[in-house]
Design a protein around this nucleic acid. Sequence first.
DNA 1: TTTGATTGATTGATCGTTCAATTAAAAATA
DNA 2: TATTTTTAATTGAACGATCAATCAATCAAA
Lengths: 211, 211
Amino acid sequence: MPRIGMEAERRRSLIAATVDAIHEQGYCDVTIAQIARKAGVSGGLAHHYFGSKDQLLAATMRHLLHELGEGIRARLAEAQTPRARLSAIIAGNFETGQFREAVIAAWLAFYSQARTNPASQRLLRIYSARLVSNLTHSLRSFLPLPDAQLVAEGTASMIDGVWIRRALKEAPPDPEAAIRLVEDYVEAQILLHRARASGATTPQPDPGLPA
Amino acid sequence: MPRIGMEAERRRSLIAATVDAIHEQGYCDVTIAQIARKAGVSGGLAHHYFGSKDQLLAATMRHLLHELGEGIRARLAEAQTPRARLSAIIAGNFETGQFREAVIAAWLAFYSQARTNPASQRLLRIYSARLVSNLTHSLRSFLPLPDAQLVAEGTASMIDGVWIRRALKEAPPDPEAAIRLVEDYVEAQILLHRARASGATTPQPDPGLPA
DNA sequence: TTTGATTGATTGATCGTTCAATTAAAAATA
DNA sequence: TATTTTTAATTGAACGATCAATCAATCAAA
């Protein structure tokens, strides 16, 4: 079998196998042997190309981040207006291929793992900061900076929340419903903050009882 | 040392130690020995009271779900109006004691683990369904059923999203900022859906380019 | 013949789990 | 009260299984 120039293909299939294995076995219980078998190679080869289990998992995470980022970047390049840029970011986060059960399982695991792994944490923070920054910038067309920052953080939270709640559902992912939920948030927030700014008497949330 | 009636105390401290250990080591790398040491007992005792590592982790999850549920129930009992009930649910989800780094780490791990563990999945689904049901019921005072259901799902997503994004931050958790974000969502959604229902010309989200 | 790809048996360490032995509080007995 | 017996709590050493990582041997394309 040994043909020349196998490395790229092996790396690709091992990373894909890692995502599937996490989906099926769970991040904690996944073994190199399972991943390798799924990729159709021996366990030794995974070490040969990635060095260690940790590095394979890290490479998988970088791959997912990269794919998501590329998808969003492509959509942003086509967007003509600030409002269209907002929609591009939102839709990019729920692109088919990303918003799949196996990928969701991997993301969840990485979020969990990033809490104790500095390298993973750094990656996620950079991605998250860029997302919020992009959102804030586009929102500035509609809102003053403090409001834009608030809504950007809210939008990022809503996106992550829709992702995480996917992990609990049985029905197949519904990107359109997900997008609608986030778009509704953005739309309503723009209206609400504008109304507040214009001094309209808007009903305030009930503070409830003190804790 | 052996005094009588230690079981309740040991169970409590072992569960507390489990949460802390997950926080420090990460769910995957946590060992019975570490948890036991943190609780000040031997590894054997953890098995004596919980049977296995899996059962200890499951008990910890049930404990967290129970605490969160009790907190919300207490707040709901004091709420007088539908709007106050909404705020009670939201505030309950960010109660100090729940909205802590260690607890967040544990929740994240459980969400990830629930994907492959049917028992954990069932627990999370039941909790999630109850949350959405409570939200929907209170929202019915402001919105027709389909809208109420949508906003309830959105609120649950926003709560989960704010939680998960906590895991990425460095600064200590800020319950008030978290509550404000979710309250803003609810408030704005009620206004938006009412405006749409009353036939007002509301700007629609930019559909963007087809995927 | 050379070279990179690939394997699979092996190793070494880790960790969940078990269990026989030990401790000291509580209960029973003298 | 003093002493013995009982009982639950607790330990820590030992076992067995799992798995990441290594590496010498093999294979086939160049």
